[in-house]
Nucleic acid binder design. Sequence first.
DNA 1: TACTTTGTACAGTTTTTACTGTACGTTCTT
DNA 2: AAGAACGTACAGTAAAAACTGTACAAAGTA
Lengths: 188, 188
Amino acid sequence: MGLDPGKEEQNAALQKMRKRVIETIGRNMDLYGISLSTGHLYGLLYFADKPMTLDEMGSEMKMSKTSMSTGVRTLLDLKMVNKVWEKGSRKDLYEVEYDWYQTFTDFFDIKWRKSVETNILILRKSMEEINKLEKEYAEDPEMVDLLHKDKAKLRDAYAYYQWLDRLIDTFENGDIYKLVPKELPDEI
Amino acid sequence: MGLDPGKEEQNAALQKMRKRVIETIGRNMDLYGISLSTGHLYGLLYFADKPMTLDEMGSEMKMSKTSMSTGVRTLLDLKMVNKVWEKGSRKDLYEVEYDWYQTFTDFFDIKWRKSVETNILILRKSMEEINKLEKEYAEDPEMVDLLHKDKAKLRDAYAYYQWLDRLIDTFENGDIYKLVPKELPDEI
DNA sequence: TACTTTGTACAGTTTTTACTGTACGTTCTT
DNA sequence: AAGAACGTACAGTAAAAACTGTACAAAGTA
């Protein structure tokens, strides 16, 4: 893990601690839709004391470089890791985004926002169609009733997605920290 | 979908609209860690005008009852659907939780909160261990430096998880709606 | 009590996802 | 310009997840 090789043995306890935290982090990564091993990769990078190359990751994870490449890309897409430039090195270097609040925000901005937007589009379109059908079947009370029920559902869904959109806004613009401030950690 | 069978043809446009919305809902369900077909099942239940049985779901989804059973269970675990009691029927009936704000909150309470709690536990444990190691290796400056760096990382992580915990609190106790109020939907 | 009906456990199958090794285009070095 | 090092596309393989059908336990019915 980038440690002075001569100290490996001495650091057994430290390594064990790190490993446990890395696995815990990795295991929880499924919340972000990330596979276990990519989660582990993230944990590894989290504790690396310097940016790592694909080869280094591969040898630490005992996995192929190809897998590291795809794993890193997944993490890059979610902005959980950043590409780092270092003069002199031809290899690409990566390090985690250590600001987890930012990572949280990015996740919602990237994944949830996209979802919200497409859903809102579909709902608009569907609502238009219902309005059209309402005129078409105006003399069919049963059909009108059905249409009204669906309309109410779509309206509720639409309101919810707009709320979600505004919630994500507060993550992005930082208003959320007015309601839930970042605090100094309790003594642990 | 519970419609008068005699009206099937007439309702083709309505069915098409529903199907599109159902698929959109279903597709976005991966945000909740739910498979596509379970997402579709959810969408189906969303538009059902009454609670459905496993058999009804199976025939609508053209899938086995076993799959419906496991799918419903997944949704029940996330409190996305509720079991409904109806006198006279021996079959179990299910309907979606129509309050999506509640569903959103439940999701974080069930999935994220659990994650936060185990992480906090592991971090505490690891921090203790680091403190022990610090005493043990007090005369090894290099090791002390390493330990300090890890300690800082753990502390940051801890602070973040506490923040997340408080954020989820605001979902649960409704304070979030002070910052991001539920609003009447725009005209759509 | 014997007979149905209902939901799910479980084993087997299919489908999807994760992972590997090779090959190749690109970029840097000399 | 030739050669070396790097990252990734791609095809093939291994592992995991989703799905099905059967079998059975639990609970209702006659």
